[in-house]
């Protein structure tokens, strides 16, 4: 018995004696690491990225698409025409965001909710993707002239799931299945429901500059559809609180309903719009 006590009392400090202090700390702080900054902005080009705003952050998005490059010198390669979207997105939590926007195309208001369901992580608990779900309502505002459309006719819905993986600190890719439902369409060449799969990727050239691409593949276009798959390429430049995204795309749309279902330009025929998204972030709420 006495021997046992002796043994126990000495055994106690034997365990800690040999290890170096730092390796002890390493053991203590073994933790889950979450991927961050998968994309620079909340948009890759035309569509959402998995990124949501942090809690209390307000993002102002000023997006612009000019006319097409193949209009030639008469319209200064499209610069005479412009389509604008003004938008706000606010982080209610680090994962839940709410947004509101107004586009000059069809005088449309869009409003959405986004929630980051899963975060890519490694370590104690690992998960391969960041997944964000988003639901949007679009409403074409009526003009004062009084058209035949009812308020219901003016509404469209979009549901989507953004799945992204940050493969390295430079390269990220994203896959987005989505569904667009428009209450009223021109039945002869449009569907009420359109499904699409969007592929997007970005590559960081320097710490503050990255290039990105986005392809929006329509899964079930109407057989007589005059529309095209939306394609876009862009350069993101980040300076402090601003992100400047310069884009080339065949769609005028700056929201999913238009991008998926009403992209009228043929990219390979030169119907390419130059444009930009400029975002400015303000921290207006407390983080805790």
């Amino acid at each position: 018995m006495k021997r046992l006590i002796l043994l126990l009392t000495f055994a106690g400090h034997q365990v800690y004696a040999q290890d170096d202090l730092l390796s002890e700390l390493e053991k203590k702080s073994d933790d889950t690491e979450y991927a961050f900054a998968t994309f620079k902005g909340t948009r890759v080009i035309n569509g959402f990225s998995v990124e949501t705003k942090g809690k209390g952050e307000l993002e102002f998005i000023f997006a612009h698409r000019f006319g097409t490059l193949n209009e030639g010198s008469y319209t200064l390669w499209g610069l005479d025409d412009s389509f604008v979207r003004l938008g706000l997105e606010y982080g209610l939590t680090d994962r839940l965001g709410i947004g509101l926007g107004r586009t000059s195309i069809d005088n449309t208001i869009d409003s959405y909710l986004r929630y980051k369901l899963f975060r890519q992580s490694k370590g104690t608990s690992s998960f391969p993707f960041t997944i964000t779900v988003a639901g949007t309502i679009n409403y074409k505002t009526p003009s004062t002239k009084g058209e035949a459309l009812t308020s219901e006719d003016r509404i469209a819905y979009v549901g989507q799931l953004n799945l992204a993986r940050k493969f390295s600190s430079k390269f990220s890719a994203q896959l987005t299945p989505m569904i667009v439902h428009r209450n009223t369409v021109e039945q002869s060449y449009e569907n009420n429901d359109d499904a699409a799969l969007a592929f997007a990727a970005r590559y960081k050239v320097t710490k503050s500059v990255s290039v990105s691409g986005e392809y929006n593949y329509r899964l079930s276009p109407h057989t007589d559809s005059p529309y095209f798959d939306a394609i876009g390429f862009g350069v993101d430049i980040e300076t402090g609180g601003h992100v400047f995204q310069l884009v080339f795309t065949n769609t005028r749309g700056m929201f999913d309903r238009w991008v998926v279902a009403e992209t009228s330009g043929d990219f390979f025929d030169g119907d390419i719009h130059f444009g930009f998204n400029i975002t400015r972030v303000f921290q207006i709420g407390k983080r805790k």
Binding site: G54, K55, E57, S169, Q283
Partner: peptide, 10 residues
């Protein structure tokens, strides 16, 4: 600011 935190790490 969340953005500062992202920039700090990235």
């Amino acid at each position: 600011k969340s953005l500062m935190q992202t920039h700090f790490n990235e």
